[in-house]
């Protein structure tokens, strides 16, 4: 019974960690959209928000790590769980870097690419949110993890396609005159899509952990 009591606190912290990742994904989505929809000044407050979320996620991850080892909980899966938390933390890191890059470089996204960029941001953020659902299911109901993993895979493919479309349109366009501008647009398309790649990496880890945990 003591073990069950101890784990309740830990379960709360793990839930808190996934909440943080999900919020960071939402902040990323809104922040980039604000920028694309001519409200670049708002990105600063989003960067502050995502910084706070990243710090919180870091703190929670460390607490979870200490508790898992100190209380000898889930000894068979704790390595997998810590790897999972770490790789998910990288996703927030990635989101923060993209927002920062938008704020520092202030790239000029031509109007004909705005819609594709918005779709790309949505696909990437959706991938992260489905990843969070998959990770939560790993802790609570392992049988549905694969359903969410499939969704992440779908959104990652969508993001890849949109990234490709943006790059092609940018390099084929005569509206984007200089090569440096084209390269910058390509860079931001790649950066935004990187978030969905991160979500897919987390899900690959999850898939292996599910196999290891199955009887």
């Amino acid at each position: 019974m003591q073990i069950i009591g101890k784990t309740k606190e830990l379960i709360g912290e793990i839930d808190g960690f996934w909440d943080t990742i999900a919020k960071a994904s939402m902040v990323f989505r809104v922040g980039i959209k604000d920028y694309l929809q001519d409200r670049p000044e708002k990105i600063v407050s989003r960067i502050i928000e995502i910084n706070e979320l990243e710090n919180l996620a870091d703190r929670l991850r460390k607490q979870i790590k200490v508790k898992l080892y100190a209380q000898m909980l889930i000894p068979e899966s704790r390595g997998d769980v810590l790897g999972l938390l770490e790789s998910s933390d990288n996703v927030i890191d990635s989101a923060k870097k993209v927002l920062n890059s938008f704020d520092i470089e202030k790239p000029l996204i031509p109007d004909f690419l705005t819609e594709d960029f918005v779709k790309l941001v949505d696909a990437s953020a959706d991938a992260v949110e489905e990843m969070v659902k998959a990770a939560r299911a790993f802790f609570k109901e392992i049988s549905v993890v694969n359903d969410y993993i499939n969704k992440v895979s779908f959104f990652e493919h969508e993001a890849d396609k949109l990234e490709d479309t943006i790059k092609r349109k940018a390099f084929d366009s005569i509206e984007i005159e200089s090569l440096s501008w084209k390269v910058q647009v390509r860079y931001f398309a790649e950066r935004v899509a990187l978030l969905s790649d991160g979500a897919e990496d987390v899900c690959e880890r999850l898939a292996i952990s599910v196999i290891k945990r199955s009887l």
Partner: peptide, 24 residues
């Protein structure tokens, strides 16, 4: 016993920590 346990775990849908406690 393996088949029985598999059936039980499928029905009960225990969380990782609860399963860990019960297993201990």
């Amino acid at each position: 016993l393996y088949l029985l346990l598999k059936l039980i775990l499928k029905k009960w849908k225990l969380s990782i920590f609860r399963l860990d406690s019960y297993t201990r």
